[in-house]
Design a protein around this nucleic acid. Structure first.
Lengths: 117, 117
DNA sequence: CCTATATATGCAGATTCATGCATTCGTCAA
DNA sequence: TTGACGAATGCATGAATCTGCATATATAGG
């Protein structure tokens, strides 16, 4: 391991931290939130109350989870009168995931030499 | 929303749950574990003690985190005598992430029609 | 204005899980 | 076999957060 490649690896490691310390992953690793995404996938655009009626959690809890998912850029939010509608922002999530894969792929040759194939 | 496309969405939703309820995401959303990955990226293949010496946590804690990362298929594990060495299984992680993106991409047209562009 | 409904927020209890210490297990060297 | 070292596990503590209830905020309708 030369000094030069070590510098490259250190840079790659910072990149890795920024990839995985994102709000995206934190939002997706909670089962209750994935359940909300599942519901929105089946039923499409829905308001808070409708979502909560089909899940075991209280509406206030669902409201918080929706805020987390929206804050992570996973859901679109649209307020109409008293109702707030949410829907999965599929293209955005795909884009974020593609970016993560692309960045991580660049790190592989550095983090695990002789482990590429 | 026809009955037919609803069936497709329900199937897609199950797929979505299996994608995001994986051990992979749970393993990656803990900062201490990402730190371990960062260390392994910089230093390469290392044993438990060496990793723990460079992190704030106790060796026992690091050992547990390594077990979680290994259980999630992120790290390779290799026992040599009294030492247990770990390294990032980069290609495997890339493959898993690519699979996630590919499967999620198929769901997008179903979960958010009119939201593709 | 007042009331009802939809959502968000303050708060406290419950749960999950990371953490450290002590101990145990496994392996190497005398 | 004994002693030493590396790693893993049992256990208790603490921090983070999920959860539900009560309340507050916002908006529509009378």
């Amino acid at each position: 391991m030369s000094t030069l490649s070590r510098t490259a690896r250190t840079k790659a490691a910072r990149e890795l931290t920024s990839i995985f310390d994102s709000k995206l992953f934190k939002a997706l690793c909670e089962p209750a939130r994935v359940e909300i995404m599942r519901f929105l996938t089946v039923e499409g655009r829905s308001d808070v109350r409708t979502i909560a009626e089909h899940l075991p959690q209280d509406a206030s809890v669902v409201s918080r989870h929706l805020a987390v998912l929206h804050g992570a850029g996973i859901l679109r939010r649209c307020k109409e009168g008293r109702h707030v509608f949410f829907e999965v922002d599929g293209p955005k999530v795909v884009g974020r995931l593609e970016d993560i894969v692309a960045r991580f792929r660049k790190i592989v040759p550095l983090c695990c030499p002789g482990n590429e194939g």
